[in-house]
Design a protein around this nucleic acid. Structure first.
Length: 220
DNA sequence: AAGAGAAACAACCGCATCGTA
DNA sequence: CTACGATGCGGTTGTTTCTCT
């Protein structure tokens, strides 16, 4: 099929292309990715340039093997958040969402899967979270998980968040691997918080998640 | 040494959301 | 209010490298 997409090259990046992109960003800064091809003549679409910079060329990206500490952190965060790779990566310094996702799919997922094999029904962590808060997370949009609830709490976004049906509970449990059932709790794979301790507000799931993450982060 | 299959990593695609004119 | 381009995310696919026979 020959279409507009044929204007752009696909596949692995060459050293020359990397240099062109790096020079462009050094000169113009990040953003305006669609301008890269126009300004530099690089035969790559904006999305491809952005991805290449974020995942590979950026000086903030840590290369090399994942440490045991990073593995543990990712496993714990995945337990809490599920496949929300960008959120997880945001808590793992120097690692990108793509790196974390790939590492999970090739190493950690198998490791964790093997450990859990035979330990009962495995459910998606968002389902587990949904169960624990008494609502349906699948109705939420991605933006409900971004830390941008500022100012107007009566706005549409907070109304969306309220769809969760979040209710005050004395204890809130999160489990990425197990259904939450009385008398059948896998404490190794759960994080528990007292909502009093966290001063949990029902209108903001993100605040809850962020406090949860800080809680874990400082406890590591 | 060479080929096959598995594993690891890089990149693409489709969709959702955001920002702005 | 709406349309549209830019950006971000997660799933998936493609390519390369490694390991085993």
């Amino acid at each position: 099929m020959e279409g507009r997409s044929s204007e752009y090259k696909k596949g692995l990046w060459t050293v020359e292309e990397d240099k062109i992109l790096t020079d462009y960003i050094r000169l113009h800064g990040k953003g305006k990715w669609n301008r890269v091809a126009k300004v530099t003549g690089l035969k790559r679409c904006g999305k491809s340039c952005r991805l290449r910079w974020i995942n590979y060329l950026s000086p903030n990206v840590k290369r090399g093997n994942f440490s045991q500490e990073e593995d543990d952190l990712i496993i714990r965060l995945h337990n809490l958040l599920g496949n929300r790779w960008s959120l997880i990566a945001g808590r793992v310094p120097g690692r990108t969402d793509n790196q974390v996702k790939n590492h999970w799919n090739t190493h950690l997922g198998k490791k964790v899967g093997a450990r859990r094999k035979g330990k009962g029904k495995v459910v998606d962590s968002t389902q587990a979270l949904s169960k624990s808060v008494g609502g349906n997370l699948s109705t939420l949009s991605k933006s409900d998980f971004t830390p941008s609830l500022s100012g107007n709490e009566e706005g549409t976004r907070s109304q969306e968040v309220n769809k969760i049906g979040f209710e005050h509970q004395s204890i809130v449990g999160l489990s990425g691997s197990q259904e939450l059932m009385k008398g059948d709790i896998d404490y190794d794979n759960c994080f528990w918080f007292s909502s009093d301790e966290l001063d949990l507000q029902p209108h903001s799931l993100m605040e809850f998640l962020d406090k949860s993450l800080d809680f874990i982060w400082h406890g590591l």
